[in-house]
Design a protein around this nucleic acid. Structure first.
Lengths: 213, 213
DNA sequence: GACTGTGAAGCCATTCACAGCT
DNA sequence: AGCTGTGAATGGCTTCACAGTC
């Protein structure tokens, strides 16, 4: 099997291509070129072809790519040719927002359990779920064969709840707390640091201002 | 002025270092080494030193860095030695969560206006603000000298509302919609694609599974 | 002895440019 | 003629390793 190491940036772009292809397909477009995809998502056409080339040959020279076929391939590659059950810990406003996020649903993600340790939140309804105490997590993970957890608890308890997830059987975590988790060999963690993203903007604004002197 | 091009990854890590230094400072730690910072945030010590070296010499050989001083420098570099006014468009659940995000406040970000075009949301209260119609945006931007906008509107109107922001005077946008915005020369856009992050996890899970065959 | 700051080396990702196919 | 697939070239980020300083 041709298993090179795939850049993470490539995987991220595959997700973007996939959504763009979905839009093209809904618009009834049959064929698309790497240049059109590139324009649609804001990268170079060489980048699109190189990214796709990691996974195989999907196009026809002189013609381009069949939208439906390439969409199917991208979904398959990303592991989205199935449904994924998720759990979420931290039923605050952000947790609530993620639970009601319709894009997750359209990509095949299904949140099957929401957990919190705050008594005022436990029992509250979020869409079609009831917030449960953390103690119930292990059982839900087992019952629904959950592999992925979303962590939106406050910074000071994030490591502790992450450990609980891992002990419950979770092997991939999307972490929204500002504290990077201690990495574990067998668990895949992605941090989403929203203030860091804002701070890239303020850094650039500061730089721009300095250069205008 | 020694203005090399600074890698975006470096700026992002500066934000992470900054928050870690803040924690150390609150814990009363006076001095810290690059190795300790590295362990604290999950990078290599050489990376920490290299990142800091883009901006100057802040440490003492044989000793390390003074926590308070380095914290102050990192904040200054990131442009956080002042308050930044923000506006947010899209008062749905995610918008609500971002408006009530306490970390933004602690980093000096202040949301001074929330906008939506949905009549059922206009007039609603979010923390100490009232959701306003999009038409009011330009005036609020001018009045509070806002440079940064957060975009949490549905995908199909994101470009349109982004254009409104830009016409109102916004020059940096944090975009949470799944559609990448058409890039404009003079506007700095960062996309936060949350499903793409989940899809990196499912991709890796798929790969792991394939390798266990 | 401990730790920073930094040139050099190594590695990874993107862009270029063109052969190959329709 | 148009577009893909890809080796080669380029560019950029990270790691190494050590001289310099306290």
């Amino acid at each position: 099997m041709k298993t090179l190491r795939i850049p993470e940036a490539t995987v991220m772009r595959m997700s973007v291509y996939s959504k763009y292809l979905n839009k093209l397909d809904q618009d009834g477009i049959i064929t698309v070129s790497s240049g059109e995809i590139a324009d649609g998502v804001g990268v170079s056409s060489a980048q699109v072809r190189k990214d796709l080339a990691y996974f195989g040959e999907f196009g026809t020279r002189g013609v381009g790519y069949n939208v439906k076929d390439l969409l199917r391939y991208t979904l398959k590659i990303l592991g989205l040719d199935r449904e994924w059950n998720l759990i979420l810990a931290g039923a605050d406003n952000l947790g609530y927002a993620l639970c009601t996020n319709t894009e997750f649903v359209s990509r095949g993600f299904k949140i099957v359990g929401v957990f919190d340790d705050d008594l005022s939140r436990i029992g509250r309804r979020i869409s079609n779920m009831i917030v449960q105490p953390l103690e119930e997590m292990a059982q839900v993970v087992k019952e629904h064969n959950v592999k992925i957890g979303i962590l939106t608890v406050p910074d000071n308890s994030s490591q502790q709840v992450a450990d609980l997830m891992i002990n419950s059987g979770i092997i991939a975590i999307l972490n929204f707390s500002a504290i990077p988790l201690n990495p574990t060999e067998s668990v895949d963690v992605r941090n989403v640091d929203m203030s860091a993203l804002l701070e890239i903007l303020t850094f650039n604004l500061g730089f721009k201002a300095a250069q205008n002197l």
